[in-house]
Structures are given as C-alpha cells and as structure tokens.
Design a binder for these strands. Structure first.
Lengths: 207, 207
DNA sequence: CGGCCGTTGTTAATTATTTGACAAATCATT
DNA sequence: AATGATTTGTCAAATAATTAACAACGGCCG
C-alpha cells in the first residue's frame, strides 16, 4: 500500500464515500468494482486502481465489503478525526451553511463563527455562537482550530487569509471569488468558486 | 484556431476571465503570459497553449491586450448571451444565491424561482418571483430557459432532474449532494458538491 | 474436493495534460 | 533603419492519468 496518491484520486474519494454510504443504507453488503463503476459512472479499472493506492480492500472472486470500504475511506479522508473549524463572516451564505450544512459528516466540528455586525455578534445560528472578529486571535490561539470557512466579503478575503495562516490554521474553505496566494505558509486552500462553476456551465450550454 | 479544447482548458477559462477583469479594473492595459502566469499561479507555457486553442490573441514582443482578451474569453464562455435560467427550490441556499449571487455576470438571467412552500410562493427574493412548482411545465415550455439551478432537498433531485431534462433544459447547476444520471438526455450537469469539497480539505489537513 | 467462474491487484499500453524549447514576429531605442 | 530585448505560437518532450489486459486468488457448485 501507500503508493503515490494523485490529486485526481483524492478528489474522487468523497464520491466513493458517498456512494458506499448510500449502498450501505440500501442494505447492500458487498459490491464489485464493475457494479460500482456502473453506478458511479466510472470504469472498473479506475476504481480498482484508485482503491489500491491505499491497500487491498477487496477480495478476488468476491468484491468489496461495502461497510468496510466506506469506513476505510472515511478513515483515509480523516472524517473520524473531528477537527475543529471556525467560520469567518456570517452573512447569508455563512448562515445558509450554518443552518443547512452538516460539518460533522465532513469531519469537522464548527466551534465558533466570527463577524463584525452587531446583528450577528452574540447570537447563535444553527447551534454555533458568533463572536466579534476582534476575539479571533485569542480564540484561535487557545482552541487551535485547524480549518477556517471564509464566507466574508471578497475585499477582506486576502487579508483575513494571511491572518489565519499566521495564526497556524491548516486549511481554508474559501467561498470568496478570489484566488488566495499564501506562498510559503503550509495552508491548503479549497475553493468553492460558484461563478467559475456556473460559467463553465454557460460554456457547455452555448457550445 | 479551433484546436481540440480539453475539459482542463474549459475549467480554467473562468479563472482567466476573473483575473483579466481584475487587471482591467486596475488599469492594466497589456500583459505578457509570463506576468499573468505569476499572478495566476500557472506556467507561461500553459497560458499560451490554453489561449491558443481559440486563436492567436497575443502579439509577439507585446503580449496580450487585457480588455480584448477578457472580452474574447467572455464571448467564448458565452457570458454575453444572457441565457434564461430558473431556480428549483427556494430554501436557505436558494435564497442566499438569489440575494448574493450575480447570475448576470455568469451569463444568465434568472427569470423565475419555483417552490412548494406557501412561505415562498408568490414572493420575490432578490428581484426574482417565486411560483408554485405546479406551474413549472407551462412556464418552461413558454419561456424556454436553458438552465436550471437545483437547490431543493436531495430526495427530490433525481426526479426533478429528469423532469427538467424532459422539458428540454440544457444545463443543470446542481447544489444537491447527489450524482444525477441523465443518460441519453443532452443535458450538462455542473455539480457544486459542498461536502466533497470539504472532505477533500479534511484529507489535506490530516495528511 | 476439484474445476469453473468471478473478481481482484498489478503491470503495460494508451491517452491526456503540462512543460520546455525555440524560430519568427514585434517593439523599443538609438 | 538597424540592433537588441521581448514575447508569442507551436512543436516536441516529459509527465500524469486513464484504460486495457491478465495472472492469481478465492468463492461456489456439483
């Protein structure tokens, strides 16, 4: 096991997890790479190769045990680690996430949100308390969240990102339509660029 | 011009557009592939090759004209076409998009939203009127929107997607955490999988 | 308990994508 | 107008990712 894991494989892992979890709910106990491929719209070959990066989870002549494989992938992704996360910016998108999105299912515990507006500060949304952004440093240094969700106005994104990187945050989930450059800092930025996504769709439609 | 355009290139186009638009706002009139590469975190070679799929927009010894190139890319993406779009499901995420997201900048006009809840039906959010889902067929057949934004509960996503495909919608912007299979139908699905994105970040943090 | 069938893990071939290199074109300067 | 400094477009090389092929293994049935 432990061959070189490419970015392409990592980006597929959540999809495997999702489908395996569904299969498990459907009561399916085992599955072959072939059937899974049909279901997921991939090739059997790719699935076998992907999974084999992490070790031989299958059995010849039998296939893969659905629950076992799901749990293995959860463990590879680190979903069981319950890392702490904070949110910066409690606007409409931030609130939509707080109310509708289950951070726990993705391996995180959202422990606090930060904002400047008196409308939000001191209030709780979806069970997460909002503090004033001035308390950020103290909170991060004592609680050591590993991840920050960036849902603030784009003009403040770059500054906030450096501030977070300086404080030792390891990952930024960026909802701002800005490319964050944090050269040197050991921070992974995962972008959710709505506009880029919709523009891509625009291209396909007009193609 | 008109070489084979790979998916990888298409996914980068919005990013080019974004950076060029920023440069334009900053008053930069021309840029070389080298400078743009530094700014965007790509290689100069890649930029030249990407752009050359669509034609020679640059000039040797000079570089690229920022506004011209931005407009060319907008045109390639089809941002100037103002295709009609509808939204299915006006929950918190739907509303967050209606209020905060500029569909026009991405080439679409969001002409109507649909929902079942009496709390939303008949009301307008961010300037978009919400109708009852029962009026979907009639509306689509008369207005012919090319794109649908799927922001409804995941259990209804698959059925709604087929319904939309049957009605002739060309693209689906899917916010549901479900993989839509519309085999045969000429529909392009662009997914915004929040959970997949965050799980990827989880992997990187725990790596 | 032996042979066939299904299915994996793995290696090799293919295809896709990125990077490197450089001739040809243009600009800037004198 | 000639020279040197830039910078593109493009072709070739290198790298990455996907697909195909198959030997080896284990389940299943008679």
């Amino acid at each position: 096991m432990d061959k070189k894991v490419s970015i392409a494989v990592v980006r597929r892992l959540p999809k495997y997890y999702r489908h395996l979890d569904e299969l498990s709910s459907e009561g399916v106990a085992r599955i072959s790479s072939g059937s899974l491929a049909v279901r997921m719209g991939l090739t059997a070959s790719q699935i076998r190769q992907d999974l084999n990066c992490f070790g031989g989870f299958g059995q010849q002549g039998y296939g893969y045990n659905v629950e076992r494989l799901r749990d293995e992938i959860a463990s590879i992704l680190g979903l069981d680690r319950r890392a702490k996360a904070i949110m910066i910016g409690v606007g409409r998108i931030g609130k939509a996430l707080l109310y509708n999105f289950d951070f726990r299912l993705c391996g995180f515990e959202l422990v606090r949100a930060f904002d400047v507006s008196p409308d939000s500060v001191g209030r709780s949304f979806g069970g997460v308390m909002t503090a004033h952004i001035g308390e950020l440093e103290e909170f991060v240094l004592s609680e050591r969240p590993q991840c920050a969700v960036l849902t603030l106005p784009r003009e403040n994104a770059a500054t906030m990102a450096s501030r977070l990187a300086f404080l030792g945050v390891k990952g930024i989930w960026n909802f701002t339509n800005v490319d964050l450059h944090l050269d040197g800092a050991a921070v992974w930025v995962e972008n959710v660029h709505f506009a880029d996504s919709l523009m891509t769709l625009c291209y396909r439609i007009n193609e």
